[in-house]
């Protein structure tokens, strides 16, 4: 596409899954015990979306990536110290709850409003990208609603690949059952892309990119608009952990074969 894409990535934070996550009732409803004090990480779905977006932007001259994120400001800042070194972007921050006990529609409304307020954002070049199940407790609804609110009707979910073809059209691979993909071709933006895992690994930290990003990250955090979500609009009858006891161990960089073998052994046992 001549002039490149305007890529907006929606990506929020989640509690570090290694922590002990225990539901508790707080003053504003359900929450996780000590949630504010627990370290947070970028939602893995959104992480894939961000890395893929940056990769796409790199291959399309003139493209630019905005990262729209909602969460407690101080927690977003901590996240930026690691994720801010991965890929170039401009941050649009919203100071609000990143709890799992918010409603998709509320979150989507706040995100859509923030995106609409981005100066110089050209909707005709817009690729709205995010994790396909993010900010919705796995329902896959938030990104769809953001798209609807912005009037984007071409939506693709569970996407593992987006490529730009010679004629400028976009080819997308969406997950379908049986490990297969549905291939779609879209002639032009705007589109919504809900990412699955994609194919890219997490980029290594690059402090030079970090220093460049920080020029916009810190001001964006300072002017982050306060957003009220998940406060009183929902009533949770009860929340509880799954019955199963978790047994966690950390294994990094395992091959697909190793993972498959372990699953087979687990099933056999």
């Amino acid at each position: 596409m001549s002039g490149g894409y305007h890529i907006v990535v929606c990506g929020g934070i989640v509690p570090d899954p290694l922590q002990t996550l225990e539901p508790a009732v707080g003053p504003t409803g359900p929450a996780l015990r000590n949630e504010m004090m627990l370290p947070a990480v970028l939602d893995p779905w959104a992480g894939h979306a961000l890395f893929e977006a940056a990769n796409l932007a790199k291959s399309q001259p003139g493209s630019k990536v905005w990262w729209v994120s909602m969460g407690p400001k101080a927690k977003l800042q901590q996240l930026m110290m690691s994720m801010g070194q991965k890929v170039p972007f401009e941050l649009v921050a919203l100071d609000g709850s990143a709890s799992g006990f918010t409603e998709s529609a509320e979150v989507a409304a706040a995100l859509a409003e923030a995106i609409s307020s981005i100066p110089d954002l050209d909707q005709s070049r817009l690729l709205l990208i995010g994790g396909w199940e993010s900010a919705s407790r796995g329902a896959g609804s938030t990104l769809q609603i953001v798209g609807e609110r912005l009037g984007i009707v071409d939506q693709f979910q569970g996407v593992d690949e987006v490529s730009v073809q010679e004629d400028g059209s976009l080819k997308l691979l969406e997950r379908v059952e049986g490990g297969k993909h549905q291939i779609s071709v879209c002639t032009a933006p705007p589109i919504v892309v809900g990412w699955a895992t994609g194919k890219l690994p997490e980029p290594p930290n690059n402090p030079q990119i970090g220093m460049m990003n920080m020029r916009t990250v810190m001001p964006a955090l300072q002017r982050a608009k306060a957003v009220q979500v998940g406060t009183g609009s929902l009533n949770f009858v009860s929340v509880r952990l799954p019955e199963q006891r978790r047994s966690t161990r950390i294994v990094k960089d395992a091959t697909v074969e190793e993972i498959a073998q372990e699953i087979v052994e687990w099933i056999k046992d």
């Binding site: 290694l18 922590q19 002990t20 966690t248 950390i250």
Partner: peptide
Amino acid sequence: MIPEALDY
């Protein structure tokens, strides 16, 4: 409260 596992 401690995490469920070491992060390495």
